[in-house]
């Protein structure tokens, strides 16, 4: 969990772009573990009457919850930080063995201007953990790539039935500032 992570003066537009693509993909359940990088998107989901925004105590809860959502005919998305991906490894066996169409959006820590070394071990292995558990990984570095990547990932998940994670690079989000 982190405080405001954006260092640029200008308010980024990509959280609204993600929200637009999630609306277009008929996402109805938004499970999240709070993260500074996802803060704006979480606020948009909470304000959206078509979405149930649900805070989790730990990330793997979201994997099971969204499996239930799909069983019942709804699309969902899991929002988390890279540090939570390791928590999901065992629960991803549910996704893999039942071929549930997971869509996870992961804000990256520990890879670009990271002040806190404790973020590095999980940040440097995020992709590998997903790939070990048969989840496809897409990565976004630049703001203009956010919307088309989310659109592609949602399509791969909900139409293609393939578990997909999108990693939002720390360079895109901005490094967390600990000391002003």
């Amino acid at each position: 969990m982190s405080a405001a992570a954006v260092t640029s003066d200008k308010e980024p537009t990509w959280p609204a772009a993600i929200h637009r693509r999630l609306q277009a993909a008929e996402v109805r359940q938004v499970a999240y573990v709070p993260d500074g990088g996802h803060a704006a998107l979480i606020r948009l989901a909470q304000a959206d009457p078509t979405m149930a925004a649900v805070p989790l105590t730990t990330e793997e809860e979201g994997i099971a919850m969204l499996a239930g959502a799909w069983l019942g005919g709804q699309h969902g998305v899991l929002l988390m930080q890279s540090s939570g991906v390791g928590n999901c490894a065992n629960m991803l066996s549910l996704v893999r063995i039942c071929r549930f169409p997971l869509l996870a959006l992961v804000t990256m820590r520990g890879e670009w201007g990271e002040f806190n070394p404790w973020q590095v071990p999980m940040g440097s292995t995020t992709s590998a953990v997903f790939e070990l558990m048969d989840t496809r990984v897409l990565r976004v570095e630049r703001e203009e790539d956010v919307e088309p990547t989310i659109e592609a990932a949602a399509s791969t998940a909900f139409r293609g039935g393939t578990a997909t994670a999108v990693l939002l690079a720390q360079r895109l989000i901005g490094s967390k500032v600990f000391v002003k």
Binding site: R28, A64, M65, G68, A69, L71, G72
Partner: peptide, 9 residues
């Protein structure tokens, strides 16, 4: 949690 997601859906 699986029951919860299903109940919401």
């Amino acid at each position: 949690m699986m029951g919860f997601g299903l109940a919401l859906a």
